Simulated scan of single mutants.
Amino acid sequence: MENNNEKMVIQLLIGKQAFPITIKRDQEEIYRRASQLINEKLGRYEQSYPHLGYEKYTSVALLDFAVQVLQLQAQQDQSPYENTVTRLTQELEELLAEK
Rank of each mutant, 00 (worst) to 15 (best):
N5K: 13
N5F: 09
E6C: 06
E6L: 02
M8F: 07
V9Y: 02
I10D: 14
I10P: 14
Q11C: 11
L12C: 02
L12Q: 07
L13N: 14
I14C: 08
G15N: 01
K16Y: 09
Q17M: 05
A18L: 04
P20L: 06
P20E: 13
P20A: 10
P20Y: 04
I21F: 07
I21R: 04
T22W: 08
I23Q: 01
K24E: 09
R25Q: 14
R25H: 04
Q27W: 05
Q27S: 09
Q27V: 04
Q27R: 09
E29V: 13
R33D: 05
R33E: 01
A34W: 02
S35T: 15
Q36F: 11
L37F: 15
L37N: 14
L37P: 09
I38N: 04
N39C: 05
E40K: 11
E40D: 14
L42F: 05
L42I: 06
G43N: 02
Y45A: 06
Y45F: 15
Q47E: 10
Q47V: 08
Y49K: 15
Y49S: 12
H51G: 11
L52Q: 07
L52P: 01
G53K: 08
E55C: 05
K56S: 03
K56P: 00
Y57K: 00
T58F: 14
S59W: 06
V60N: 00
L62K: 00
L63R: 08
F65V: 02
Q68W: 04
Q68E: 12
L70A: 13
Q71F: 07
Q71I: 08
Q71W: 05
L72V: 01
Q73L: 15
A74Y: 05
Q76N: 07
D77L: 12
Q78A: 11
P80H: 11
E82F: 11
E82T: 08
E82A: 08
N83C: 13
V85W: 02
V85F: 07
T86P: 03
T86A: 10
T86S: 00
T86M: 05
T89D: 07
T89C: 04
E91G: 01
E91W: 01
E91S: 00
E91H: 02
E91K: 02
L92I: 13
L92R: 10
E93K: 06
E93T: 07
L95N: 02
L95Q: 11
L96S: 02
L96F: 03
A97F: 01
A97N: 08
